[in-house]
């Protein structure tokens, strides 16, 4: 089509045949979905967070920052923040280490590699599902598979009461479940490893570098942008952990597994305090933004980019 600088009167025909119109119409399902299911609910929840909104209550009162002030006097809320941080700090590095390790082992040229990769990816496929959480709950129950094996090996006194007692152990099965689902990070790592030119390793080998050197001096720096990406994605998703806590422990015992998202859900649905729960989720957003920013800012120090050197 040739450009025509003269302004023409509006015509429906031209409008409908315009490339942009077609593009927008194709994008419309997404735009509608985004507006209806993301943007509007988000704005609504921001408004609610300044009210005492409950379900079925027609009189909604604005209470300013009341919800936010109350949050910091709420012992369960403060505990849920602590527990969630503990979960993120332990599970994310373990998961990434594990994913990198397996991805590294699977860079070898063997015909079985694809099979292994698919196998290791399976836990992530079934990952967030309720069914796996239910199985997990059974495995770590008082007479679950874990204790059957454990007491067989070490005698009846060695029985571990994961979800009982003082509750300090309860979070570890949840962490283990998250680490077990390392598949998606592994795939991304594997792709990153393939991108590292073989010539780097060859050059290093001629200079007499051993495997240890090669991993820390070549693989890790070259992979650092991928590590950054995985770190951020996994941190964000770890903050939002819900299914495991809801199904396996219901937040108990003594709120030792009361994850942030679970407490938001309980407050909104079980305790019927929608406004308070909305305030909580906005605080969570702020926390996650800050954490992500910190990771980004520090990344300049440790992420290696080939363009710089």
């Amino acid at each position: 089509m040739t450009e025509n600088k003269i302004k023409k009167p509006f015509s429906f025909k031209r409008f409908i045949y315009n490339d942009n119109t077609v593009g927008y119409i194709f994008a419309l399902p997404f735009i509608l979905g985004f507006l209806g299911f993301s943007l509007v609910p988000m704005i609504t929840s921001l408004v609610y967070s300044f009210t005492d909104m409950t379900f079925g209550d027609d009189e909604i009162q604005f209470i300013g920052f009341g919800n936010f002030i109350k949050l910091f006097q709420d012992e369960v809320f403060l505990k849920s923040v602590r527990v969630t941080f503990k979960y993120v700090i332990i599970s994310v590095p373990m998961k990434l280490t594990f994913a990198l390790l397996v991805a590294f082992l699977l860079t070898r040229k063997s015909r079985l590699v694809t099979l292994y990769r698919s196998l290791y990816y399976v836990p992530s496929l079934v990952g967030g599902s309720v069914a796996v959480a239910l199985v997990w709950r059974q495995i770590f129950a008082r007479r679950g598979l874990f204790n059957v094996v454990w007491t067989d090996l070490f005698g009846a006194d060695a029985k571990v009461n994961w979800f009982g007692g003082n509750g300090k152990l309860a979070i570890y099965p949840l962490i283990l479940m998250s680490v077990w689902q390392f598949g998606s990070s592994m795939i991304i790592f594997a792709a990153g490893l393939k991108e590292i030119p073989e010539s780097y390793y060859e050059a290093a080998m001629i200079d007499g570098a051993n495997g240890f050197h090669r991993f820390f001096k070549i693989t890790l720096p070259c992979l650092s942008p991928i590590i950054l990406y995985n770190l951020i994605m996994q941190t964000i998703s770890a903050f939002m952990v819900f299914t495991q806590a809801k199904i396996i422990t219901e937040g108990g015992p003594n709120n030792e597994t009361m994850m942030y998202a679970l407490y938001v859900y309980n407050t909104a649905i079980s305790y019927d305090r929608m406004g308070y729960a909305c305030a909580m989720s906005w605080v969570m957003l702020v926390i996650m933004v800050i954490i992500t920013l910190i990771i980004f800012k520090t990344s300049k120090k440790w992420v290696f980019s080939e363009a710089d050197s």
């Binding site: 709950r137 129950a141 008082r142 009461n161 994961w162 979800f163 009982g164 007692g165 509750g167 309860a170 422990t249 219901e250 108990g252 015992p253 003594n254």
Partner: peptide, 8 residues
């Protein structure tokens, strides 16, 4: 039962 057993 303690909290863990109660959950069963």
């Amino acid at each position: 039962p303690d909290a863990g057993a109660e959950m069963e």
